[in-house]
Amino acid sequence: MSHSIIHTEQAPAAIGPYSQAVRAGDTVYFSGQIPLDPATGALVDGDIATQTRRVFDNLAAVAQAAGGSLAQIVRVGIYVTDLANFAAVNAVMAEYFQQPYPARSTIEVAGLPKGAQVEVDAVMVLG
């Protein structure tokens, strides 16, 4: 099966040796997004809600570049540096997704690139 690389200027460029997303057949695998401003590449200032909104805006831009939308995401992986932010992340996610919600895991980690508080990766199925 062939695959194609997904890239958009509407989401931050990769900060390492990876692609924003890869499409294989009708499945799109998103790399983790942290709350970087696509225009500057800088981490956005603000609380966990502000950072989480930026992350989902970045994911939405990549989904659109792949020919889809957040509504077609079937799995989300959320990584936070403090599980005390679980409720705030849930509240923001509810602004971007409606039922039926994608499958999800939420994992506390010791640290994230550039000092981010949250990172999200995803899988989307088109068609």
Rank of each mutant, 00 (worst) to 15 (best):
T52W: 06
Q72W: 02
V74M: 05
V80A: 06
A61L: 07
D57E: 13
F97Q: 13
A84C: 07
K114C: 08
A65Y: 10
G68W: 00
D82N: 13
K114D: 00
S69E: 01
M93H: 05
G68T: 10
Q64M: 11
Q117V: 02
V62R: 07
F97Y: 10
A61F: 14
P113S: 11
S105P: 03
L112M: 01
Y96F: 15
A61R: 11
F86G: 02
I78Y: 13
A87K: 14
P102Q: 05
A110R: 07
R75Q: 05
R104K: 11
A66Y: 08
V62M: 02
K114L: 15
A84W: 00
V80K: 01
Y101Q: 09
F56T: 03
V89M: 05
A71V: 13
A61Y: 03
Q99R: 08
T50D: 10
F86R: 01
V62Q: 06
V76M: 07
A65T: 08
Q117P: 02
E108H: 11
Y101S: 08
L70C: 07
A66I: 14
A66K: 06
R53V: 11
Y96C: 13
A49Y: 05
V76R: 03
A94L: 05
S105L: 06
M93R: 06
E95P: 01
T106L: 15
L112A: 04
A103W: 02
N85I: 15
D57V: 15
V89R: 03
D82I: 01
V55S: 04
V76F: 09
Q98V: 08
I107M: 12
Y101D: 04
V62T: 10
I107G: 08
V76E: 09
F97L: 02
P102T: 14
P100K: 11
A65N: 04
R104V: 15
R75S: 05
A65V: 11
L112S: 06
I78R: 13
S105Y: 08
P113E: 03
Y96V: 11
V55R: 03
V80G: 00
K114Q: 00
T106Y: 05
A87E: 12
A60I: 14
A71S: 12
L70K: 06
V89A: 06
A103Y: 04
D57T: 15
R54E: 15
A91D: 11
G77M: 09
K114A: 06
A94V: 15
G67I: 10
L70M: 13
N90W: 00
E108N: 04
Q99Y: 13
E108S: 09
T106W: 01
A116H: 05
G77K: 12
P102R: 10
A84R: 00
F56G: 01
V118Q: 00
N58V: 04
A63G: 09
I107V: 15
T50V: 14
K114T: 09
V76D: 01
M93Y: 03
S105M: 10
V62N: 04
G68V: 09
G67C: 01
Y79A: 15
V76Y: 09
G115Q: 02
G77W: 13
G111R: 05
A65W: 05
G111F: 11
